[in-house]
Design a protein around this nucleic acid. Structure first.
Lengths: 188, 188
DNA sequence: GTCTATACTCCGATAGAC
DNA sequence: GTCTATCGGAGTATAGAC
C-alpha cells in the first residue's frame, strides 16, 4: 500500500498501476492478486486507511480543548496539516479522481464520523453562545466543509510544496472560525 | 475537441484517449496527428478554449452592473453557473488532474485576465466603501478565489447533477460577497 | 505464496503509400 | 489529408506449475 501511494504521487492518483507496484516490490504482477482481488480493491484499502487517519487527526486536534470554537479551530488546523502532509491520499479521499472507483460503505464509514465530529463541535459552540443555532443545520455544516475544502484544494493545486505556515491559502484556515462566526453571528 | 470533451466526461479528464476520439470521429488515429502534434496539445487547446469561455462568462455576468459588490456578486454567479454547465472543462482548468500536462503560457493567458477582472471589481467595491482596502491585497484576492473554488469543488464532487439553484453548495455563491464583507468590513 | 506463460485489450506515435 | 502497417510499449487479469 505504501508503494501504491508512491506510484500515485508520481503518476497521478488515477495512474496507479499494479504492474508498477509489483516492479518496485520486486515481485511479478500476479503475486499481488493473492492480497488484493483487483486494482479497485487497493484503492478501497487506501481509502479506508486514509479516512481513518484523517479522522484521528481531527480528533487529536480537538483533544485538550473545551468543546466549542477553540476546539473547532484546533481541529480544522490539525486536519489541514494532515492533508498537506498526505496530499496524494487526500486527493483520493476528497476529490474522486479515479473514474469507476466507488468506495465501499465500510471504507466510507470514518468519513461519517468526521462529519459527526464537526457537527458536535458546532453544537457545542452554539451552546456556548459562540454561533447562531442555524450553524448546526445541514446547510451550515456544508458551508464549513466547503470552505475548508476550498482552501485546501487551492493550496494543493497552486502551491503544493508550500509549508503549512507559508501557504497563501492554508494561512486562512486559522481564521475560518471567525468567518463562520461572521456568517452565523450568535443572537444576543 | 468536442468529442475529446465527451470522452473525458466519460473516462475522467485524465482518461482522454486519441484512439477513442478517432473511433468516434470515424477516422484512424494517425489522422489526428495532422491537427494536433500530441495528446497534450489537445489538452492545451481545450484549456485555452475553456479559460477563454470562463473569462467571457464572468465578464458577461458583471456587464450592466455598477462596478462594486453588486457586479462582483453577479460575476461570481455567472462563473459558478458556467462551471456547473461545463464540469469536465472546469476540472481541466481549475484542478490539474492530468499528470504531465502543463498549460502553455498562451493557454494560461485568459486566467490572468480573470484574476485582473476580479481584482478590479474588488478595488471598485473598496472605492465605494463596501470593503476594507485590505480586500484588494493578494491575500484577500486569494481568499475570494479559494472560497468560490471550494464551494464549486464540493458541489462537483458530491452533487454534480444538482441544478445550480438546488445545489447544497452553489446556493452559498450568492452569499459569498456578504462573507467577504464580513471578513473585510469597510472602515467607517 | 511465488512463479511462468498467456490471453486480451489498449495506448501514443511514426513511416510512408496513395 | 487520409490511409495501412507497424514500433514499442503499457495494462489487468487468469490458469496452472512449483
Amino acid at each position: 500500500m505504501d508503494i501504491s501511494l508512491q506510484v500515485m504521487s508520481e503518476q497521478g492518483v488515477a495512474g496507479l498501476s499494479l504492474s508498477a507496484v509489483a516492479r518496485r516490490l520486486g515481485v511479478r504482477p500476479p503475486s499481488l492478486y493473492k492480497y488484493f482481488p483487483s486494482r479497485n480493491a487497493v484503492y478501497d484499502a487506501l481509502f479506508r486507511r486514509g479516512q481513518q487517519a484523517y479522522l484521528e487527526a481531527v480528533r487529536q486536534g480537538a483533544a485538550g480543548h473545551e468543546p466549542g470554537m477553540a476546539a473547532m479551530a484546533a481541529s480544522l488546523e490539525a486536519g489541514a496539516r494532515w492533508v498537506m502532509a498526505n496530499q496524494t491520499l487526500a486527493q483520493l479521499l476528497f476529490w474522486r479522481p479515479v473514474p469507476g472507483f466507488v468506495p465501499s460503505p465500510q471504507a466510507y464509514e470514518p468519513a461519517l464520523a468526521v462529519h459527526a465530529h464537526f457537527a458536535e463541535l458546532t453544537r457545542a459552540a452554539i451552546d456556548r453562545g459562540e454561533l447562531h443555532p442555524d450553524a448546526a443545520s445541514e446547510e451550515g455544516l456544508a458551508l464549513g466543509s466547503a470552505l475548508i475544502a476550498g482552501l485546501l484544494s487551492q493550496q494543493l493545486a497552486n502551491e503544493p510544496a508550500a509549508s503549512y505556515e507559508q501557504g497563501r491559502f492554508t494561512r486562512w484556515v486559522a481564521r475560518l472560525p471567525a468567518v463562520l462566526a461572521a456568517v452565523y453571528p450568535p443572537r444576543r
